[in-house]
């Protein structure tokens, strides 16, 4: 914007950016550092910036001698399942909002907004009772269903904004060219929405991956614990195995980071248009 600025000002600007970077990255660095520090050194140099020795021992223990691999798998199943189902359903709803005028549209959008406003914890008790009544406590399916419902409104608004970005003319041209509406959707709209679908998948995956409280409530068997629940249980039981806990934490970070890198470029455009639009 402004073309000229004094060297002092730009130095201050870079310093500020560096501070932000440090603040953002230091906790993650610390997590990784402790995870890599051998057990016997944690108490003597726990607060040193750089460890004198590093080891992968903690990771090895976590992966092979604890149920974390199973937690990891459960979380992956839940998150991928939620992301896939949510994106599919939200794509349908977003398409309807973007392309059709119909009776009750405002009402449905309003209801979706309502679900974004009230404290989700309000429904934790009813959901627990419903799931228990269906005999679905401790099942990953119930988690997928619940998470899917939670994420549909946001994902729908997000998908709607992506569909809005695709000119209606294209579908109509396809229909003039001999497509049914569904064929037009499949051959013309779908290929163009791929980035949007990817971003939505990413958002929903990350959200499902980090959900803790409902998982705590609905799951208490070791076999179906998701990663957050497992890690928390682990922490409260073995609160001295710092290195192992942090190694587990680093592992939990990996899928989120992969998705984050994937969706990073859509963040600024996608999140805002999806989040703010009503």
């Amino acid at each position: 914007m402004t073309t000229r600025s004094s060297p002092l000002l730009s130095a201050a600007r870079y310093l500020a950016l560096a501070l932000y970077l440090g603040f953002a990255l230091f906790p993650l660095y610390w997590l990784l550092k402790i995870a890599l520090t051998p057990d016997q050194l944690i108490y003597t140099e726990g607060t040193r910036m750089l460890p004198t020795l590093t080891t992968l021992e903690n990771f090895r223990t976590v992966v092979f001698q604890t149920p974390f691999l199973s937690y990891f798998r459960n979380s992956l199943v839940v998150s991928l399942g939620t992301a896939a189902v949510t994106t599919l359903i939200a794509a349908g709803a977003g398409y309807a909002f973007s392309r059709f005028r119909f009776r009750g549209k405002k009402l449905i959008i309003g209801l979706m907004l309502v679900t974004q406003m009230f404290p989700l914890l309000m429904i934790i008790a009813p959901i627990y009772k419903m799931v228990a009544a269906l005999g679905m406590l401790n099942s990953l399916t119930s988690l997928i269903i619940v998470y899917t419902a939670f994420n549909i409104p946001f994902a729908t608004f997000l998908m709607q904004s992506f569909f809005d970005g695709i000119p209606r003319d294209l579908e109509e041209a396809a229909m003039m060219d001999g497509c049914t509406r569904f064929q037009a959707l499949r051959k013309v709209v779908f290929p163009l929405t791929l980035p949007g679908l990817g971003a939505t998948l990413g958002f929903v995956f990350t959200a499902a991956w980090s959900e803790l409280l409902f998982a705590l409530m609905l799951i208490n068997s070791n076999e179906t614990m998701t990663f957050p629940v497992g890690l928390l249980t682990f922490v409260s039981k073995f609160s001295v195995d710092w290195g192992q806990m942090m190694a587990a934490g680093v592992l939990a970070l990996i899928p989120s980071c992969i998705f984050f890198i994937f969706i990073q470029r859509y963040l600024v455009q996608g999140l805002t248009s999806g989040a703010v639009k009503g």
Partner: peptide
């Protein structure tokens, strides 16, 4: 349906895929 009317249309935006 449009597809069965056997009519072609040129759009203002061209609507090229």
């Amino acid at each position: 349906r449009p597809r069965d009317r056997d009519i072609a249309m040129v759009f203002q935006s061209y609507a090229l895929y």
